[in-house]
Amino acid sequence: MSKIQIGILAVQGDVTENFLATMASMSELGIDGTVVQVKTIEQISELDGLIIPGGESTVIGQMSLVNGGLKKIKEKIESGMPVFGICAGMIFLSKNSKDKVVGKVEQPLLDVLDVKIERNSFGRQKDSFEAKISMEPVGISSFNGVFIRAPSVSETGSDVEILAKFNEKIVAVKQGNILATAFHPELTRDISLHKSFVKLVDNLN
């Protein structure tokens, strides 16, 4: 078995936090692999898995479009590469997104995750919150959800499995090789979700 390589999309957002959480996950699982910060098409081509971090989805989308990164990422995901999108990353993966207040805004999306997203679903920064959530389908019974101007999933396609809800809002989903959360596991000390993503990449390799 070859060494796995997981990339963190380093266009904009909290790249370092995901980098460290992924490194810690690999070492705890005893999996031989590397974690790299990626931006260019060449770097993305080499990957066995990709994490799209939190940030501003409009910026990550537009800047990935500039250097052709967007097209390459889409190609890789469609050919089976596991991807984990967090907050802005979840929006970027989706087929359809609109803002709770502003409504529909033109923004480049990867168009691979069959969901409709409501951006800023819980309100503005002052309404950002931490709360306990549970993700039984991936064997995580309690997780500290850090929601920062978080989106939620308002509609899901038939292949989409719901991993977690907060009240009635869907906040974590899985569709084949695609994992996405509205909250920020990389801002907690709990690496269980990053670990399950690393395992997903490792199993496919």
């Binding site: 909290d14 940030g55 802005a88 919150f129 931490e130 709360a131 009240n167 907690t188």
Partner: peptide, 26 residues
């Protein structure tokens, strides 16, 4: 506070500093 019946906490350092983390490289 609460959202519906679920307890939440707002305005923690994690949320405030975390917001700034989301702006990085921007």
């Amino acid at each position: 506070g609460k959202i519906d019946s679920n307890p939440v906490v707002r305005g923690t350092s994690t949320l405030k500093r975390g917001f700034a983390h989301m702006l990085k490289n921007g």
